[in-house]
Amino acid sequence: MESSNQLVCVVDDDAGIREALSSLLRAHGKSVLSFDSGKEFLESVQWDALACLVLDMRMPGMNGLEVQEQVTDNSHASIVFITGRNDVPSTVRAMKSGAVDFLTKPISENALIRAVDTAIARTQTQRQNAAESAGLRALYETLTPREQELLPLLAAGMLNKQAADVMGITEITVKVHRGHIMRKMQASSFAALVRQAGQLELEAPST
């Protein structure tokens, strides 16, 4: 399968529509693969390559919502749904599950390209955020248990003396731990450290 992380996959059981959409997307510079069923797509996809899925809602076998569930569980890729008829309950469910758009056939060229570009941009943002979160979590895991215990106390605004009282250690020890935490978390300032703790969703224990 394509290795580009901007790959667009088109899944539709109608060969004519599938080929027309694929050709249109390629004409706009997209890397495209097409599939005639959700099953075929899921058996072939490489999640790290997929950026956008143009997905028919109603197909034999797995329907679009069932495919969407698999994509959501395995990838940050974004979905643009297409359908031959207006189905409000399915539209609501798809959008609540994170679909970028829901286009009704016959599909406007401009609407499709806008939706796919939006989907690719969203996927890139989600992947970047996930990578940053993973990197931050890796830094956090380098902290000792004591440092992990201290970090949320400091981020909650406790003074060194207050944190020392909560942890049952000396204020000097807190200062040493604090320096180690700043270095290991690669925080350029205490404000940056507080932001990192917020991203990690660390909460100080109730006292």
Rank of each mutant, 00 (worst) to 15 (best):
A130T: 12
E19F: 06
A121R: 05
E66W: 00
R183E: 10
S44M: 04
H28R: 05
V80D: 09
I113R: 02
S37H: 02
R93V: 00
V88M: 15
D12K: 02
R137G: 00
A164Y: 01
Q70L: 07
T207K: 13
Q46Y: 03
T173V: 00
T91I: 09
E147D: 15
M182I: 15
R58H: 14
V45L: 06
L153M: 05
N129R: 07
S97M: 10
S34D: 07
A138K: 12
M1P: 03
N110W: 00
S189F: 14
K105W: 01
S90Y: 05
T118D: 05
E132M: 15
L65Y: 04
A164H: 00
F81V: 03
D165M: 11
A94R: 08
K30G: 08
N110S: 02
Q128C: 01
G135F: 06
E109M: 05
T173H: 02
L150Y: 13
A20M: 15
M167W: 06
L200P: 04
D101I: 04
S34E: 04
N129Q: 13
R127H: 01
L136P: 00
D73E: 13
Q199M: 05
Q148R: 13
E66P: 00
T91S: 05
Q186P: 15
L150N: 09
E147P: 07
G64R: 06
A119T: 05
I79E: 03
T207L: 13
A155Q: 05
E2D: 11
N86R: 12
Y140E: 09
L55H: 07
G98H: 15
L25F: 13
A164C: 01
R127S: 00
I17E: 13
L150E: 13
M57W: 02
E19N: 10
L25V: 10
K161H: 12
E203P: 14
A111P: 01
V10Q: 12
S97V: 02
G16C: 00
S90V: 02
D48Q: 10
I82M: 10
Q6N: 15
M95C: 12
F190L: 14
Q68N: 02
P145I: 08
R146D: 09
I169C: 00
Q124A: 13
A197H: 05
H177R: 06
L153A: 01
G84P: 03
N160K: 09
T125V: 04
N5Y: 13
M167I: 07
T72C: 11
